[in-house]
Simulated assay, not measured.
Amino acid sequence: MILHPRNCVAFTGHRLYRDEARLLLPPTLERLYDRGFRTFLDGMAVGFDLAAARAVLELRERHSDVQLIAVVPFRGQEHRFPAAWRRLYDEVLDAADAVEILAEAYHRGCYAVRNDFLVDHAQVVVAWYDGSAGGTRYTVERARARNREIINLHPRAVILPESDAVLF
């Protein structure tokens, strides 16, 4: 699959996300749509990723030209999820316009490969980032280093130093 970053939005966020941005995601996605973004890349992780994917599917109900690309770090990722999240994962995967599976099996570093793919193929990264260490921090820092626009929906939005990216 060949994607041009200037047309794509990616998501990154914490697994401990508990639907706190439920009211923020729809208007954020609508504004991105108004700016011309039609392709949304989702890393398919428990928490913010799957919530964002669900919001993209709702956006697609209003705008038929929206595409959701499920970026799966390895085949069988969902087997590690709790049952409720696995159901949502299956629903999102079935509804996605395309699925990009990056590895046939889990391997050390596969989540970083997925995060790199998301940033490298997007112009905008929508985050749920509270400043804590982990994969979300890695992804936000990579997005900043690659001069991607960052939209952080977390109420305690963290501003990274030396960033030209937009945080709001």
Rank of each mutant, 00 (worst) to 15 (best):
E91D: 12
Y138H: 10
T139V: 01
V158T: 14
A84I: 15
R38H: 15
L29C: 04
I2T: 08
Q123I: 06
G109Y: 09
Y89D: 01
E61Y: 06
G76F: 11
R54W: 11
G76H: 12
D164Y: 15
L93E: 07
M44C: 07
P26I: 02
E20W: 11
R142Y: 07
A53I: 03
E30S: 06
F37K: 02
Y138Q: 10
A45M: 10
A157D: 12
Y106V: 06
W85R: 12
Q67V: 04
A55L: 03
L93I: 10
N152A: 09
C8S: 07
E141A: 05
V72S: 01
E100M: 09
R80I: 15
R144K: 10
P27G: 08
L59R: 04
H14S: 07
S163M: 06
E30K: 05
D90R: 15
A103E: 08
R146A: 05
G135N: 02
F37Q: 01
G76Y: 12
L16Q: 12
R146D: 02
A21E: 06
L68S: 03
V158L: 06
S132G: 12
A112V: 11
D19W: 15
L57Y: 04
A53E: 05
A55P: 00
L102G: 01
A143G: 08
P82V: 11
V113N: 12
V119P: 00
V125P: 00
L41I: 07
A45I: 02
V124S: 07
A165Y: 08
L29D: 01
G76K: 11
T28W: 00
Y17R: 03
L32K: 00
T39L: 09
R87E: 13
G134L: 09
D19I: 11
M44K: 01
N7F: 13
T139E: 00
D19T: 12
V113S: 09
F37Y: 07
R35W: 06
R62E: 13
D130F: 01
